[in-house]
């Protein structure tokens, strides 16, 4: 049964903070993030009949947002003045772990900053970690958002954590981060 429209609107608005947070991480731009969230909300409302059990509304909304972001990215690529931007994950080389030399190169830039370390990850790893570790989605929900098997999510989380640890390792001051 389809959720009544006012109730559905309320549910979508309840997810606004999480959607905006992911949009900011994806776009790295406040205005673009707002547009992306707005586009997501409108698409969700329009397609609410397609929302079915078997997935959570949270995962469904995040998936719409990420797909919208990827669409925008590809559209920008097709424009004559389009720039590469920062979406290495969508371009397909992501399934390889970062090379040791890259990590060595990135380390001084990242220093002890977890945010910079996260930004240094390929998009698919970064989004997976953000959804699972920061937004608190289950691994099954993350798989739904990313449109990949659960095993891929597990593998990405495992490898992303490895790389994050390596990036942060030599720069973490004694006791920093320990509560």
């Amino acid at each position: 049964m389809t959720t009544p429209e006012p109730e559905f609107e309320r549910l979508v608005l309840e997810h606004l903070d999480g959607l905006y947070n992911l949009a900011r991480w994806l776009t790295r731009n406040m205005d673009e993030a707002q547009d992306l969230v707005q586009e997501t909300a409108l698409k969700a409302l329009k397609a609410r009949d397609q929302f079915r059990g078997g997935t959570t509304l949270t995962a469904w909304l995040y998936r719409i947002l990420r797909n919208s972001f990827i669409d925008r990215y590809w559209k920008r690529q097709r424009e004559p003045s389009g720039q590469e931007g920062d979406l290495p994950g969508v371009l397909g080389e992501l399934e390889q772990a970062l090379e040791e030399t890259e990590i060595e190169h990135l380390r001084p830039l990242v220093a002890a900053d977890i945010n910079r370390a996260l930004k240094a990850l390929p998009e698919q790893w970064r989004t997976t970690v953000l959804l699972a570790e920061v937004e608190g989605l289950t691994w099954e929900e993350v798989a739904e958002v990313m449109g990949c098997p659960l095993g891929t999510v597990q593998s990405r989380i495992f490898r992303a954590r490895r790389v994050l640890r390596q990036l942060l390792k030599d720069y973490a001051p004694e006791g920093k981060g320990e509560e």
Binding site: I114, R165, G177
Partner: peptide
């Protein structure tokens, strides 16, 4: 891994305007 989990709590959250 536990230390990394703690550090991931410091990841920036952007509040929606």
């Amino acid at each position: 891994e536990q230390a990394l989990s703690r550090r991931l709590r410091d990841v920036a959250r952007y509040p929606s305007p």
